[in-house]
Design a protein around this nucleic acid. Structure first.
Lengths: 227, 227
DNA sequence: CTCTGGTATATTGTATGCAAAATACGAACC
DNA sequence: GGTTCGTATTTTGCATACAATATACCAGAG
């Protein structure tokens, strides 16, 4: 029995998984709701050719993505990048609200002080006035903030579940942050959330996070009619 | 344009999907945590032979199931029915708590009186004394009750998300209902939940449902050490 | 008798082949 | 001119074939 700390060499990167990760990253990188109809189609042959593999791993990857809700398949017609309807997006925000508010509860109860403190640093480079000027950066920070709360919960299953709808929530937040000066409200909400976590007030943190997310839903419902 | 209300004949049931549903139903029907190690293996060839199809649709179905978390694949070694560890089960209950409590909130706010009333009928055939005698039936009713709250929310995304972890929650509830006379507590909790919904008290309903689920987690954590 | 090493077998992962269905295109008809 | 029908082409869905890896089995050494 050797005492060497050998790292297990992973041959678990099958083509199928690599293709899945590749396509997923590509979809994640594009702004779903700003590409035109024509580019929504995912041609098996084209993907196979471009990635230099056969159609089999492509299909398995597409099946994965379909189950995840990132692409839809129309039988005998092919796979398409899935754009969610307004109703679906509203529902997704509701699910996100459920998950993140539970995460906030867990974070308040379990996370370390340092972990909670790390939430403040996300917004360190912003002060009240400069947000409007650096809206893109602020949007990223905003998204990271919400993702981080889920991470801090330490609940892997929560993270995974949220992960599969994250791309849509991210897209919504990115699109709506500029509307109606929402970022002003946003920065206030975030601060309150952080404070409630620091105070270890699980009920309050949960409520604030939920209401923050549901306010987003209400905003989308009222404003984004072009979905 | 014909005015006939012809039902579209669905050719959308690809073998791949049929196989997926078949295997899923089969796994759902068995009690995951009571079968022995040997029967956990899912042999592609055997499945293909038994279902009379080739390995291709079998594999696509297995990929779906893997993404859903019902089976795990060990690269180059095959697919296995996934049994969750105790930690994973606890996390799954937490996610369920998040989803069902949000569903309770929505139900309190949006569901019709009749819909809420239907929750009572689930337990119609039980009165206090006879539960212990009909524990299996009561366990089914119990599970239906929780599932129904999620349905009543009218949120399809919530339903889908919960659906993918339902089998595990069901299994846990089924296993633990008999322990420590938990069903007594259960019947009281359920009644309170129904009353809060009837009173349209969203905050209370949410809290009761969450605490009910988290109590289950606490129970599992304290009692089920053989996972 | 136990353990090591090598070979045979079985099984996965990927590529390719083939049939059925859908789309595209064009001709014929109204 | 617009619609409808029929054919050619493309593309999916499934089956099969093949290569690489893992398991099983057995022989031989200690």
């Amino acid at each position: 029995m050797a005492a060497l700390a050998l790292a297990a060499l992973r041959s678990d990167v099958s083509l199928s998984v690599q293709v899945y990760e590749g396509i997923r990253a590509a979809i994640t990188a594009t702004n779903l709701y700003e590409i035109d109809e024509a580019n929504l189609r995912l041609d098996e042959r084209e993907l196979a050719a471009r990635l230099g593999v056969s159609r089999t791993p492509i299909r398995e990857a597409l099946v994965r993505l379909e189950h995840e809700g990132l692409v839809t398949s129309i039988p005998r017609r092919g796979y398409y990048i899935a754009r969610k309807s307004k109703t679906e997006l509203l529902e997704i925000i509701v699910v996100w609200a459920a998950l993140e508010s539970m995460a906030a509860r867990l974070t308040a109860l379990q996370a370390s002080d340092e972990a909670i403190a790390s939430l403040r640093t996300i917004f360190a480079t912003f002060d009240g006035e400069r947000i409007a000027a650096k809206l893109d950066e602020y949007s990223d920070a905003n998204i990271r903030f919400h993702q981080r709360i889920i991470e801090l919960s330490g609940c892997e299953q929560l993270r995974r579940t949220a992960g599969s709808i994250f791309i849509h929530v991210r897209s919504i937040r990115h699109r709506t942050i500029a509307e109606n000066q929402r970022f002003e409200r946003s920065i206030v909400d975030h601060l309150q959330i952080i404070e409630s976590l620091e105070a270890r007030d699980a009920d309050l943190a949960e409520r604030l996070v939920r209401d923050h997310a549901l306010a987003l839903a209400a905003h989308v419902n009222a404003n984004d009619n072009d979905l």
